[in-house]
Structures are given as C-alpha cells and as structure tokens.
Simulated scan of single mutants.
Amino acid sequence: MPALKLNRPALLIVDVQVGLIHGPQQPYQRERLLATINQVIAQAHEAGAPILAVRHTGPAGSPIAQGSPFWQVAAELQLEGRDARLFDKQASSAFQGTDLEHWLKEAQVEDLVIVGLKTQYCVDSACRAAAQLGFKPVLVADGHSCMDTELLAAEVIIAHHNHTLHGPIARVVEAANLQF
C-alpha cells in the first residue's frame, strides 16, 4: 500500500494517561501500542507537524482527578523536547470544552492524525467530531486500543472501529503507511 501523504497535518494523542496505561486493566497490546504511538510522534516531529495531546480529567475524588498520579500523561510517550501542546478535557470529545478546534483552525490544520485510548469512547469521538468540524481525520489503525469488555474482546472492538470509521468519517491507515 502506498504511503498516505498528509496535507497540513497535526498529530492528536488521545488520553494516553497513567491510569489507562498502568491501571488495573491494561490496554490490548499495550507495548506495541506505545511503540506505534512513539513512532508516529517521531514522524510528526521530524516533519515539523504540531503534536497535540488531550487528557481526560475526572471529577474531584476520581482516580483521574486533576493533579492525581493516574491523570498524568504516560511517561512512556516520547514527548520530551517535542514541543507538544496539552489540552485537558472533561468529556469524551477532545473538542468539547477545550480550545482544540480554535487552535487547529488558527494553525490551518487539514489532516488530523489520531492515536490513543480508548477506541470505542474518546478515539471514536475525536474522529467523528473532527470530521463534523471540517477537519480530515486520519485514524492510525494500529495506533489506538482499549480493554476487553463484558461483551467484546478489545481486538474485536478495534477491528470494528477501524472498519466502521473508514470511509465516511476517517481515513484509516497503518502507522507504517503515514507520510507527514
């Protein structure tokens, strides 16, 4: 498959936080996921594309309340020296209650490359909201994950979302086929 050449791209890393990476339930293929996200971070940085991260902030007293250890962005992300911008959110959508949309429009971003956690919640919401706001979402097929649920294995949830979001909502591409 030829590389997908991006136009005025930015990278959006969704909820890769200590509480989700190291919590009681581990994301499906955690180590591979982190390696893939770091590969995409390096590609974006090398190309001079903006690197943005959002983290979910829970209510006071929750494990991911503002300032708590689980709320922090996972240290495994290779963001040091990458001039990454951080947005805090309190909803599933990375855009709701944040200035992410304004920032992206000011930067004239077209293609928004999306990676992170959890596939069926905040990653899905980021793809759908980005498309509704006029951006062109690019979901990294091997750059998002989740945990098993009572009904479905994480592997099935990921495959389902890659299939469902591809086409009308996002372009879905493996990290190896991205070209910032």
Score class of each variant (00 low, 15 high):
82 R>K: 15
18 V>M: 13
150 E>L: 15
108 Q>S: 13
157 I>S: 01
22 H>F: 11
107 A>S: 11
51 I>T: 05
125 S>H: 10
2 P>Y: 08
128 R>T: 06
33 L>S: 03
161 H>N: 11
171 R>C: 09
3 A>S: 15
168 P>K: 15
36 T>G: 02
125 S>Q: 11
38 N>E: 09
45 H>D: 13
166 H>N: 14
145 S>E: 05
51 I>Q: 04
12 L>G: 00
172 V>S: 04
124 D>T: 10
57 T>F: 04
37 I>R: 01
145 S>Q: 06
78 Q>T: 13
180 F>K: 06
77 L>D: 01
45 H>A: 13
133 L>H: 11
139 L>E: 04
46 E>R: 11
140 V>R: 01
130 A>Q: 03
101 E>A: 14
101 E>W: 01
64 I>G: 02
90 Q>N: 04
110 E>N: 15
176 A>T: 14
25 Q>E: 15
64 I>N: 06
53 A>N: 09
79 L>T: 04
15 D>R: 03
178 L>V: 08
34 L>A: 07
8 R>A: 06
161 H>M: 11
67 G>V: 05
122 C>D: 02
158 I>H: 02
175 A>M: 11
40 V>M: 06
61 G>D: 12
175 A>N: 08
162 N>G: 06
95 F>C: 00
153 A>N: 10
41 I>M: 05
16 V>E: 01
68 S>M: 06
22 H>P: 07
18 V>Y: 09
120 Q>S: 12
91 A>E: 00
100 L>I: 07
129 A>S: 12
89 K>L: 00
65 A>L: 13
138 V>C: 07
63 P>K: 10
15 D>P: 02
54 V>D: 00
155 E>V: 14
104 L>V: 03
105 K>D: 05
99 D>K: 04
52 L>K: 02
126 A>S: 09
92 S>H: 04
137 P>C: 09
66 Q>S: 15
67 G>R: 05
50 P>D: 13
86 L>M: 13
81 G>L: 08
171 R>A: 10
115 V>P: 00
109 V>D: 01
172 V>P: 00
99 D>A: 09
77 L>G: 03
28 Y>E: 07
106 E>Y: 10
